[in-house]
Amino acid sequence: MSSDFWAGYISGAAGILIGNPLDVIKVRLQAGGSPNELSSSPSSLSPARNDKFQVATSFARGAAAPILGYGALNALLFVAYNRSLKVLDPSISDPTNLDQVSLAKIWLAGATGGMASWVVSSPTELIKCRAQLSRDRNISSWSIAKEIVQTSGLRGLYFGGLITSFRDSVGFGFYFWSYELCKRNILSSHEGAGHQEALKVLICGGIAGIATWTSIFPLDVLKTRLQAQPLHTIAIEQASEIQPLVRQSSSSSTRSPLSSLEIARQAYRAEGLQVFFRGLGTCNIRAFIVNAIQWAVYEWLMKELSKH
């Protein structure tokens, strides 16, 4: 495996270990106070509007899927990003030194990497959201994945995949773009000791995380609400190839899932524009911490692995 694969995998797993508690809060804020489509399902899924998180261990809920999945996602992301950037600019020799590379090319390579990571991010996000929104404290990521496959088949793991891929493509484009922009404005004008450079990498990584999530947060709210719909509606959507969102005339137990556009309309009518930014403050705190650490770990590992 290449250096960027392992550096991406390890840095991604490290970020999830640190950021999962705040991610639980973010997802519950996004899903809370929503319409009926987020009501409980056979897996006891619920936004738990008045949940006080009951015990400290609830903050670890949904961590298993991201730790395994996000490590692979981050590895795939960085490999696809570096390879795409190399195609766009063959003169690149050091992926950690891109001072002479166009920021437009960096954004495009980041968007390509985000799109490539969809194959991992879509099922990981679906399982994580459902675990974090469940009132069952004993539920595991594995049991949720197994229930989805049993109910909807393997395709069920990619429910909400379209909005996830769009979110990742746009978000990771800004992720790499903002990180490089910050590095050029901070690192180029102030050169110092190793610990000072490490501090600047942490700051740039944190700023990149905030810029990324601010740019895509409304999309993430819609993705969370879309993926939180009951499992039987996912099965209906998978069974209907031509018109998956056509309303059924029978009871609510057989109704089709709502689309992203329908969820957006309902959320706006019920709660106004602010619903698309609920949880952004918590998300940005988490984004700064997680991405500061991820970038620091990634840059350090790339330098260490390149020596060998």
Rank of each mutant, 00 (worst) to 15 (best):
Q243P: 01
Q266M: 12
Q274P: 01
L38I: 09
V275L: 03
R184P: 05
G110T: 09
I186F: 11
L305S: 02
G209E: 02
T224A: 11
A198D: 11
W177P: 02
G205C: 01
T112W: 09
W118I: 15
E262D: 09
K86T: 15
L22E: 08
S2Q: 15
E197T: 14
A64F: 12
Q227K: 13
N36V: 11
F159Y: 07
I242A: 03
F78Y: 10
I263M: 05
A72T: 01
G161M: 07
A296P: 02
F5G: 11
G209H: 00
T151C: 15
I236T: 12
A193R: 14
P123D: 06
I236V: 14
I263Q: 07
S240V: 07
E237K: 04
Q248S: 10
D220H: 13
L154H: 14
A80F: 00
T124E: 14
A109Y: 08
N36I: 06
L280S: 03
G161E: 05
R130T: 09
T212P: 01
M302A: 05
R286S: 15
L245P: 00
I106K: 05
D51H: 11
L126C: 08
G160A: 09
L226C: 08
I10M: 07
S46G: 13
N97V: 14
S256N: 07
Y179Q: 02
Y298C: 02
L77Y: 15
Y81H: 14
S134H: 03
F159W: 06
A64W: 05
K183L: 13
L245D: 04
W295D: 07
Q229R: 03
I127E: 12
T282I: 07
S39N: 15
G173I: 08
I234E: 05
L45F: 04
G173H: 11
N284G: 06
L187V: 14
V87I: 14
Q227G: 04
M1F: 12
A48P: 00
R286C: 13
K307F: 15
I92W: 04
I148Q: 06
D89N: 10
S2A: 15
P35S: 10
I216S: 09
L273K: 10
S260N: 09
V119Y: 06
S252D: 12
A228Y: 08
R83S: 12
S189C: 10
A48E: 09
R255K: 07
S117K: 13
L76F: 00
K128F: 12
K200A: 15
W118Y: 13
G173Q: 13
A145H: 00
S134V: 03
K183W: 14
A111R: 04
A7P: 04
F176H: 13
I148N: 09
S41C: 06
R278E: 04
S134G: 03
G12Y: 13
R225V: 12
W213C: 00
S58E: 15
Q132C: 06
Q132A: 05
N36M: 07
I203G: 03
N291F: 02
D168P: 06
S58G: 02
V27M: 02
